[in-house]
Amino acid sequence: MEVLNLLGYYIKFPFVQNAFIAGVFIALCSSLLGVILVLKRFSYIGDGLSHVAFGGLAVATVLKITEYNLVIMPITVVAAILLLRFGTSEKVHGDSAIAMLAVVALAFGYLLMNVFSNSANISGDVCTTLFGSTSILTLSRMDVFVCVFMSLLTIALFVVFYNRIFAITFDEDFAKATGIHVARYQTMIAIMTGIIIVLAMNLVGSLLITALLVFPALTAMQVFKSFRGTLIYAAVISVFGALSGILLSIIASTPVGATIVLIYTVLFVIHVGIGKVRS
């Protein structure tokens, strides 16, 4: 009862409402993209791109650009296209390309912040971007609007191109042989991935983004046979985990990102159990 009263008290604050709205939408579309990325063996792309976004943030900070999304978004989207479209070349394989890009961006970003920043608390700033500490609770109305708009766009593209996305994810060569413009859809998926990762940094910070992409997908794959079922259930699990994570973190004053990841882990373990029992 006391918990409910406490929730009723908190929910009246606009910043809490903002956090919930943004959280739900980000969780929703990161889980959809996550299913594709996991199946395409690109689980770590979230990690790599979020490091790139961190580098972008450092650039924005040093240049004193307040609308930092204007810097981060384009940089991350370009990196996403490079990795997803051209990542697997003969000289550097996909996963090593991600690893290289990630550390370079991280090192470059930290270096920039360290050398040029005039903030008194550099390690605090860095920690906030890496773990997302409280940034979801400090979103402006504008941030929330961008989150909702981009998420709706992602979901709309997913619904419209669902059949083609399935065909390409299941078998790229076959799709190409039947005349689908595979490259076009891959670029679309890469752009969406870049955008969602920048948005998701607000929710869980750049070190924990992988969880948001990977856990709902893998959890749903434990219990569902069909692609459609897996997608829908991943979205449900993802939103549930994000909502309860934000709630719990407010009540228990724990860091938002870490709390969400822990809830995802518990859900995953439970579903592995269910999958085992069923088979």
Binding site: F166, D171, F227
Partner: peptide, 10 residues
């Protein structure tokens, strides 16, 4: 995760 139907239909 895909059913026989989903694969064939694609």
């Amino acid at each position: 995760p895909a059913t026989v139907w989903e694969v064939a239909l694609s």
